[in-house]
Simulated scan of single mutants.
Amino acid sequence: MTRPPEILAIDGGGTRCRVACEVNGQRFQFESGSCNVTSDLDGSVTQIMRGLNGLAAEIGAEEADLLNIPCYLGLAGVTGAEKAQEVADRLPFQHVRIEEDRAPAARGALGRQDGALIHCGTGSFQAVQVDGHARFAGGWGARLGDEASAQWVGRLALSVTLEVQDGLHPASDLTRGLMDHFDNATEIVAFAANADAAAFGRLAPQVTKAAAEADPLAQAIMQRGADRLAFALAHLGWTSDMPVMLTGGIAPSFAPYFDAPLQAALTPANGTPIDGAISLAHDFRKEITG
């Protein structure tokens, strides 16, 4: 390491935690495990510090050398200022800003331009940014929200399969396939009682595949998700002259179900959440150094 980095940036999500910096114009990054400060604060702190230690080794520094550098963290499970302060109190950084993980995702995808973001992975949220200020909807987790996420799609497919068993819909290839997989309704209920978001999400590809093959029940699920996403954007202030970026594994599967103006606005994302975290870290450094 010829000189220390100016900033540290951390993007911590339910799947992985990325810790990054830039040295002499070159980005260095280390990836550790799952990080959600609401569901597992102790584990999240462990993964953040593991990532910091790994990054220090990557750039030829000691961990202690990085603790006085301005550090920006966008973390899953930060539900407000009180939670952010609780996390900050557990970390050794001297200059730290902690926000929810939606903020770096929006900055990474949109940059500083006006536009909208639809993120649908295992979880989901929506954002509309105007004049550098972003408004968010969703991202409240599998129990209370995350509509149109992969877990939501998988869970809804099982609900529809049970409705078929009750005679409320004709069976389709999707529901027959799910019933074959689980054998019977009792097994579906038992699975759902213990399944986490990732387990439900692993069922989503069966739904998107069936929808692409014109399965009516699968298409109804995808349409319901697309309608919810469009509803959120409209209430966040999106207008048809603003670009819309899709991120997350299942998000592109909703595109055929959007109305024409929303389809026409779809644009590739500018960058990733860690790109956004680095950008926000530079903003933070400017604030504290003047």
Rank of each mutant, 00 (worst) to 15 (best):
I48Y: 00
L174C: 08
G201P: 02
D241K: 07
R112L: 14
H235M: 10
D65V: 03
P252S: 08
D114Q: 00
R50A: 15
G249N: 07
T161L: 12
P216H: 09
R228T: 13
P5C: 11
G115M: 03
Q206F: 11
A232T: 08
A232Q: 11
D241V: 11
A192C: 14
C21N: 01
I7G: 02
V153H: 03
T186F: 05
N24C: 06
R97S: 13
L178W: 01
V23A: 09
D146N: 11
R143G: 03
I118F: 10
A64H: 06
L280R: 07
D259G: 13
N53S: 15
V160A: 06
E22H: 09
G145Q: 01
M245Y: 04
P104E: 04
I188C: 01
Q29F: 00
T186V: 08
S124D: 11
D227A: 14
A142T: 08
Q113N: 14
D146S: 06
Y257H: 08
G115I: 08
T2I: 08
F284S: 00
S124K: 05
P243N: 05
G141V: 12
D241C: 09
G74Q: 04
D196S: 08
S240R: 13
A116P: 03
N184V: 06
V128H: 02
K83N: 05
A150P: 06
D180R: 14
G12W: 03
R176Q: 15
A64L: 10
F28W: 13
N270H: 13
E187Y: 10
S32Y: 02
D227C: 09
D259R: 13
P104T: 04
A76K: 05
G25T: 08
R90H: 11
L156P: 00
A281I: 00
A20H: 03
W140Y: 14
R285C: 10
Q47E: 15
V87C: 11
I188Y: 04
A204V: 01
A260D: 14
G249W: 08
W238I: 05
D89T: 05
V128C: 06
R143A: 12
A220F: 05
G25D: 07
V87W: 01
A264Q: 14
Y72W: 10
D40C: 12
C120D: 06
T79M: 13
V37F: 04
